[in-house]
Every structure is written in structure tokens, then in C-alpha cells.
Nucleic acid binder design. Structure first.
Lengths: 192, 192, 192, 192
DNA sequence: AATGAATGAGAATTCATTCAT
DNA sequence: TATGAATGAATTCTCATTCAT
């Protein structure tokens, strides 16, 4: 457990940093290895190849985000509060982990991410059902507009994605107060 | 005149298709040349190098979009109508030209696009001032929420981006009626 | 005659400048053409290919030097005076035409020049016989050391080559007085 | 240790042979690799790029020559004997290592060598100070002509360069006896 | 398990030369 | 004759992956 996971962790960290900052182009295996403090060949003990490393790292991050959201998620709370929880948790997570955000963006806009996207959009994997369940519940309760799920999803979380990017580029300071206002506006977008 | 522009056009077309579909990785110069029906060296008569080709192609598309939006834009019309015009024109353009949409996405999520983004976010180039002017006017008239520009921008157009992607992947059929509904919801997001 | 020779002349001039200053690497045909004010294809009307251009240009320069030396060469004058004439004429020519000197150097140190050198060293071409005749006469008269011809040649003109290079690089100012001193020293080298 | 230095050595050897015989043009990296018995990419483990390989190889040779000259150089010996030592050592080295001579010539007549030449002419690097010290000492002792250093340098070693070239091309057989005569003549050129 | 030197296919780019106009 | 766009072979260099140690 000791050595094994350390190395894997280090490789993940190195890949995350390099890819998030330089893109897939700017992250050759040799460079990832160097930054991780392991030999190039060692990466292949933990990952079948570069693609697998990239995909695994994505899932690692994706799972982490899912876990954070689920952590204090209370199904019993009113709809809007639950939306508030998801939205602000996501926003704070990305503000706190800009490299994760940028990695996910890189991933989605790459051949690696295309196949995966089919899954996630069909809500087959991950914790996406939380988002969907919430929205579907809202539609059923006639609190949320009766629109196709992808539309609602885009209205609810699309702006967040754009704003986080702007935040990372330094064009807005995404502080708690602003996150709340953004959330409120997104809620305006989806509610009846 | 004949030959000159044909070749350049063909190279643009080939690069657009390959990059939009396969990403920058999947579009080596030799392949672009082959698909364009020219020799590899020919590309370099029209573009200084691959980067220049990529940036030029982006501007080509960007200008085209700007032109389409400006075409029937009527400054005299009420705010919401102007927003409607921009929004639906954009949506229809992307539905009609999915490769353009995917190319732009690739571009923005790449080293090539980083520098450019700084400009566009600072609204220094292109027709972006149209968007900003519209939103600023709305804020001044107290029709639109008083939020920082990047936030309003994200609320107004962020969902569209996500939905267009879903449309291209086949998860929604972005028809005129749905575009209108989406636009209305986005308007709900930004209006007071 | 008018147009024909102008172009050829311009191509020669352009090639001389570029090759002397940038080496053969730094003188692509397209660049030579541009500097000569002709189209790339035009060069091939006057020269079979790049090699031919390079060799022809060498001969052009070589002939010019030969002509200058022969111009005031007086067979009747004493040996040392004739040596003085050749030496100082050469020196002044190179000082006046540094590009010619550098071109010749480039040429001799290139695959182009190798074959040619065989000829010239066997004294088959050019005005080299002047040098050789002079030295042979000196040997016969027991004024000049009895050494193999290439040795005498090297002693007589080798230093000049090195000094001209230094002059062009700015490490000595090769003025008339210094040329005379250099010549005198070279004469010391070859005379009995 | 074993493999490392072998490969580097082999690459040096291959590059030396090819460049000395065919010039920089005639020595593509792939050909150097093939002749060295390594893969093309392997060269780049030992040298940053082709330029670095070329420059490093030059210094390798240059250092070797410097070492050979210094090996039996005795500062205490009379001036002429020291000159004799340097001159004949150089001559024999080049006779023994014609590829080294031709490589150096190629190098000096190339963009690679230009920058370096400035140094060596200013006697800033290598063992060149030996030559200069010797000549300056001779001038001070009024044994050698009072001429600018580049002139003396050219008189002392310029002929050797020309003769070595002729020797390599097969026009003289530069044997010990002849080397001595050449040296004596060069001494005549510089001595008072 | 770990290493990292070695591999070699593949990518971008250059440039002498050709040929339709 | 002259043009210069087009060609495509050749060149430099990169990098994912392997394998002997």
C-alpha cells in the first residue's frame, strides 16, 4: 500500500499539473515521469498507456467531485436548497481546485473525452443521476420548467462552467456572495 | 484568382473537418494536405505554419459568425428582441455548421486559444462589443440584473454552448421551437 | 543582349551576396530569385541547376581575379617585382571585394569545390600557371627555395588567405603598407 | 558506463566521417545514426540537436589537438625549438587524422563556426594563447618581426593549413623531412 | 518492481525543381 | 522568355512505448 499508492498518486498529480497547464501536447510521458519522480517505464506499471492514464485521471477527479457533492447532500431538504448545495459546492470545488477544472475541460474537448461524454450525457455513469433526479423532481412538482433534460442541465450548470473559466483567467473573482447571485440567476433560468 | 482561392479554401475545409472531428492531434499537415487535394508543401504557401493555419481558420469562422449576427441586427429594436436575434442566430448558425462549433471549442481549449481568449474576454476584438453593449444597456435600463459582465455573459450564452454540444452529440434536437424556449429561459436568468 | 545579360548578372549578384554572407544553406533558390528580381523558374533558363549556378559563379569570380592579375603583369620585370605585383593585386582585390573572397572560401570548403580543386591543383585550369611559372622560374634561378610546388605555393599565398579573413572579420586593417610587409615576409619564406 | 560512452563515441565517429567527407549537407541525422549503429532518436539523448552535435564534436577535436600540443611542450626550451615542436606536432596530427583536419575546415567555413572564430581569433579560448605567447615573446626578444599578431599568426601557420589540404588531396606527401623544411620556411617568414 | 536508455514511426517544415500559363 | 504556384522527397526532431538490467 505504501509505495504502490504513493507512486500512482504522484503520477496522477504530475499528469494533472502538466495537462491542466500545458494541454495534452505539453505533457509527454517522460515529463510526467520526471515531475512525478519516477522513471518513464514505471508509469506503465500503473497504467496501460497514456490514454488509460488520462481516462483514469479523469475518473479520479470526477469521482472526487461526486463524493464532495454527496457528502452533505440531504435528500430531505427542499428542492431549491438542494440545488443551492450542489451549485455552490461545485463552484467552490472548482475555485479551490482550478487544475481539476482545467483538466476536465481539456478532457471533454479531446478525442479522449468524446466516448465518455456519450455515457455521461446519457446519465449512465457517475453521480449525474443526482442532478437529473433533482431536475426531474422539480419538473414533476411544476417548480421547474418543463423542458428536455439536457436543456435544463445546460441552464442550471452551463453558466457556472463559463464563469469558473473566467475566474481562473482572472476576469471575475468568484467569491461566495457572487456564487450565490449566480446560483440565484440560474435558478431563475430553470424555475417556472 | 481562380486557383489561388480554391486551394486556400480547400485547405481550410480540410483542416476544419479533420480538426473538428479528430482534434489537433488527429490532423497532421500531411493529412490535411491529402484531404485538401494539394501537396504538403502547398499549405505553406498559404499559411506560415500549422499554428497560423489554425489561428487563421479560427478568425475566418469567427468573422463569419460575427457577420451573420450583424447582418440583420437592428439597433433600434427593443432589448429583448435584439437578444432574441443574437441568440437564435447563433443557435441556428451552430446547428447549421456543427463543424464550426466544434472547431471553435477545440480552439478555445488549446494553447492556441489562450492568448486570444484574453482579448475576447476583455472585449478588444471582434463583434463581442455587441453582446456587451446589449447587456450593459439592459443593466443601465434596469431591465437586466446588475451583475458583473462576465456573469451576465455566462448566463446569457453559457447554456447555449452546452445545448449545442448536446445537439451535435444527438441528445437533443435543437429545433426552432426549442431554441426559443432556451432563449426565453436564458432571458429569465439575466432579467430582473 | 540587353535583357539576357542583365538577368544573368542580377542572379549572379544575388547568389554572391547571399552565399557569401549566409553560406549555401542560407541561399535557397527562391531567395536568390527574389533578391535578383526575377522569378524562381527564371534562374533555370540561365543555369541548369543550383550546382551549375554555384560553379559558374565561382568561375566568373576566378576569371575576374585572373584578369586583374594579368592586366598589368609584366613578364619582363624581375622576379620579386612580379611576385610583388601578384601579391598586392590579389590582396587589394580581396580587400575591395570581400564577398568574392568569402564566396571562394565557401566554394572551396564544399562538395562543389572538391572536384574543382583537383583540377586547379594539377594546374589544369585558370591562370594558376602564372603563379607556378613564377615560382618555377625562381627555383630554376636559385632565388627561391627548392621545394615542391604546393609547398612554395602555400608559403607564398597561404598567409594572405588567413590575413584577408582576419581583415574581413575586423581583426586587422589590411592597408597598403601592411600588405607590403606581409608580402615581404612571404618572400622571406620562399626565397633562399 | 560501458554502453553510454560507446554510443556517444560511435555517434561522434559517424558524424566525423560523414561531415568530413561529405560536408554538413551530406550528413543527415538519419545517416549519422545508421552509420553509428543507433536509432535516429538516440542521437538526441546525447546531443540537444544537430548544431550541438556539430559544435561538441568540434570542441572534442579542438581539445584533443590542444592536449597533444601541450603534452611535450617545454616552456624552458628556446623559442625556435618550441615553434618547431608546435609546428611539427600540428602537422603530424593532421597527417595522422585527416578527417579531423577536414572537419575543422568545414566547421570554420560554416555558420556554426562563425561565432567561435571570433573567440579564437581574439585568442580567448583553448590553447591558442600558446601560439600567441610564443609569437609575442619572439617579438619582445626582437627575434621575430614586429608585426600585428594576426599577421604573424598567418605567416607561421597559414602555409601549414594549405599544405595539409594538398597532402590530403594527394598532391604532396607530407613526410617528416618535408614538414621540417616547411617549418623552416615559415620560420624564415616570421623571423627578423 | 523499478529503471531509463533505446527505439523508430510519425510530425512539421524546407526547398530544388517543374510546368501550365 | 518569364512567371511563380505547386510539388513531394528529404530533413530535423519528438515521444509513446519497450526491455535488458
Amino acid at each position: 500500500m505504501s509505495n504502490c499508492c504513493d507512486k500512482r498518486e504522484e503520477i496522477f498529480r504530475a499528469a494533472l499539473e502538466l495537462i491542466a497547464e500545458q494541454g495534452f501536447h505539453g505533457a509527454p510521458m517522460a515529463m510526467i515521469a520526471e515531475r512525478a519522480g519516477v522513471a518513464a517505464g514505471t508509469i506503465y506499471r500503473y497504467f496501460e498507456n497514456k490514454d488509460a492514464l488520462i481516462v483514469d485521471l479523469f475518473h479520479e477527479i470526477d469521482d472526487k467531485i461526486g463524493a464532495v457533492i454527496m457528502q452533505d447532500y440531504q435528500q430531505a431538504k427542499p428542492l431549491r436548497e438542494r440545488f443551492h448545495h450542489i451549485f455552490t459546492t461545485l463552484a467552490r470545488y472548482f475555485v479551490k481546485h482550478p487544475l481539476h477544472f482545467r483538466y476536465i475541460e481539456q478532457f471533454h474537448n479531446s478525442p479522449y473525452g468524446v466516448e465518455f461524454k456519450r455515457d455521461i450525457l446519457q446519465r449512465k455513469t457517475g453521480d449525474c443521476h443526482i442532478y437529473r433526479d433533482l431536475l426531474e423532481e422539480g419538473v414533476a412538482q411544476q417548480v421547474i420548467k418543463d423542458l428536455p433534460m439536457p436543456i435544463l442541465f445546460a441552464l442550471a450548470f452551463g453558466p457556472l462552467k463559463v464563469v469558473v473559466r473566467d475566474h481562473i483567467l482572472g476576469f471575475v473573482a468568484l467569491e461566495d456572495e457572487l456564487i450565490d447571485k449566480l446560483m440565484a440567476a440560474c435558478w431563475d433560468g430553470i424555475r417556472r
